[in-house]
């Protein structure tokens, strides 16, 4: 039996909204570490890894490890039936081919029940090596989203260049080019607007900006984002969900041909 009651139901709604354009389906692993999803996009360019820890839920019950094959589109459709302040409970029997979802209003005066048919999904779990990154940037997630949105107008690629000058985002296309330079700044009115750069060594990588923009749809979940860059390895973009979990995105860089 798996049962998990999430007081902040909006977290699950935003989480599914954030990833459903990147991955259409995936196996949600339920075990003593919490509720986790690891899935690649169909082009094998981007990977989503998310975790909601057991303490995100009250209660969290998982009698044995389970893997729930879920269509993110279908789950998103059902979650749209929940209000933002609803408490969401997920429930599945050990051998079930369905996931039951209960949406409960804060005063328990409205209770809705939905059932999602599960899928058999053949997916491999990938090992992600621990990496010591050349440059790590902590910044406002809204600012990151803005930069992606602006530069996407110019090109389908964005080059991120970390040097002692700061972090430069550049896009060059047919109409011209654009660049945004971010410098370390901790002297800000709101802590979430600070830009903190931890640079071991300079690094320059180019990425498909459409993926960066899709990752940036996670902005409503977290006002901070961390970018981790190393030469010739995938970008790691991390959004922490309060103290209860995270969404991490990995993106393969473009390579000179």
């Amino acid at each position: 039996m798996f049962e998990a009651r999430l007081n902040q139901g909006a977290v699950l709604k935003k989480l599914v909204d954030a990833v459903r354009d990147i991955v259409s389906e995936g196996n949600f692993d339920c075990n003593e570490n919490g509720l986790a999803l690891q899935a690649m996009d169909s082009a094998h360019v981007a990977l989503v890894a998310m975790l909601l820890r057991p303490d995100a839920f009250e209660p969290y019950r998982c009698d044995r490890n389970m893997s729930l094959g879920i269509s993110l589109k279908s789950l998103g459709t059902i979650l749209r039936c929940a209000s933002n302040d609803d408490i969401i409970t997920l429930r599945a029997e050990d051998t079930a081919d369905q996931l039951a979802l209960t949406f409960e209003s804060p005063q328990s005066d409205k209770v809705s029940e939905y059932v999602l048919n599960l899928m058999d999904i053949d997916s491999e779990h990938l090992g992600i090596p621990d990496t010591s990154y050349d440059t790590v940037i902590h910044m406002s997630s809204a600012e990151f989203q803005r930069i992606c949105r602006d530069l996407q107008q110019l090109s389908d690629s964005v080059t991120i260049d970390a040097s002692k000058e700061g972090i430069k985002f550049t896009a060059t296309g047919q109409l011209g080019s654009g660049q945004v330079m971010l410098r370390q700044n901790m002297n800000v009115d709101r802590e979430e607007d600070a830009t903190v750069i931890e640079m071991q060594q300079p690094v320059q990588l180019t990425f498909a900006v459409k993926y960066l923009s899709m990752f940036a749809k996670t902005t409503p979940l977290c006002n901070r984002v961390t970018l981790c860059l190393s030469k010739d390895v995938p970008l790691l973009l991390e959004y922490k969900i309060d103290e209860i979990g995270y969404i991490r995105y990995y993106l393969a860089p473009k390579v000179d041909s």
Partner: peptide
């Protein structure tokens, strides 16, 4: 010119 890399060359099935 650049081509899009794939994650398969970085992450292996565990």
């Amino acid at each position: 010119a650049s081509t899009q890399g794939r994650l398969d060359s970085f992450f292996k099935p565990s």
